[in-house]
Computed example of a mutant assay.
Amino acid sequence: MPSLTITGTTRVFGTLAHPIDHVRVPSVMNPLYEKHGIDAVMVPIHVLPEDLEDAVRGMRANRSLGGLCVTVPHKVTIAAFCEEVGASGRRVGAVNAVRFDAERRMHGDNFDGQGYVAGMRAGGFDFAGKHVLQLGAGGAGMAIAFAVAEAGAASLSIANRTLARGEELAHRVHKAFPGCITRGVAADADPAGYDVAINTTSLGLHAGDPLPVDVGRLDPATVVSEIIMIPEETALLKAARARGHAVHYGRPMLEEQIKLIAAFIGTPFPSFEACSAGTSG
C-alpha cells in the first residue's frame, strides 16, 4: 500500500465531533484513500457546541476543506447551517455528512438509514413486504425508521421507553411513506409476529446492559438485527443466536455508510473491503 503523502493539492475532509476521542472514521477512510490512490486525507475536528457557528465560518473559508462526516452532538445543529439538505436529512432533521461546493455553500444529508438498509441487503435481507419491530426512536433510529419504510416494509412498530416519542416518529414515517403501516408501542409490548427486530438503542454497548427485547417472546423465524458495532456481538445477538435466530451485525451499516458518504463528499471508492477499525457516528 502506498504511503499517504500530503501536498498542496490534497483535499482535506474532517470528522466533526465532541468529544473527539471516540471517533474512528479517519482510521477507516485514510487507508481507503491510500489504497485507491485518492489524493485526500480525513482528520478529526474537535468543536464544542457553543463554538460551532465560529467553526463553520472558518471551515467555509478553508478552501482545502471538501467536506465533513458529522457525529454527536452536531448532527442536528449543523443542518441549520446548510444551504441545501437532502431528503433523508430533511425527514430526520439531522445530517451526518456535509460537502462544500465551489462557492463554499454547504450541502448536507443523512446516511444512517440508507447505510443500515444497504447493510441488511448485503447480508441477504430485503425489507419489502416485511413486518418490522424497531427498538428505540432516537438518534440513528429516526433515520432507520424512514429508510425501512422507504425500502418497502409492510408495517413498522416502534417500541420506545417514552411511548409518545415512538408514536410521534411513527406518525412522521407514515406521512412520508403511507404504504407502510406504522405505530408506536410500549417498550415492553409483545414482540411476537415480526419478521425482523432491530435494536437502535444503546443497550448492549456496556456489559450488564439489559436486553432491549425479550428474545424468548420472539417468533422462531424472526431475524434479530443490531446497529452497535463495538462489541461486535452484543448480549442481544448472543441470546438470539443461542435460540436459533438468524442475526445481523452492526458492522455492515458502517461499511455501507462509508461508501455512501465517500461518494457524497466527492471521493467515491471504486471498490470497498471491510476495514479493521471500528467507528462511532
Rank of each mutant, 00 (worst) to 15 (best):
G204F: 00
F127M: 13
G216Y: 10
S155H: 08
M120G: 03
G124D: 11
G136T: 03
D214A: 15
V213G: 01
A207T: 15
R217H: 06
G208L: 13
R183V: 08
L133Y: 01
T201R: 04
R172C: 08
V185R: 02
L169H: 11
L169F: 06
K175S: 15
E150P: 06
L205M: 15
A145N: 11
A147H: 02
L156H: 03
A140H: 00
A221V: 06
A143W: 04
A192E: 04
A192F: 04
G179F: 08
A128H: 12
E226G: 08
V117H: 08
T222Q: 02
Y194G: 03
A186L: 00
G193F: 02
S202V: 12
A140K: 04
E167L: 09
T162R: 05
H174W: 12
A197L: 07
Y194A: 11
D195E: 13
S202K: 12
E226I: 05
A153F: 05
I181A: 15
D219P: 07
G208S: 02
R217F: 10
A122N: 14
S155T: 09
L169A: 13
A140R: 01
K130F: 10
A186V: 07
H206C: 14
V185F: 09
P212V: 08
L211M: 14
M120W: 04
A143N: 09
E226K: 04
N199P: 05
M142W: 00
N160E: 11
V173I: 14
V185Y: 01
H206Q: 15
A207V: 14
L163N: 02
K130N: 13
Y116F: 15
L211A: 06
I144H: 04
E150F: 04
D188H: 13
F177K: 01
S225W: 05
M142G: 15
A164M: 07
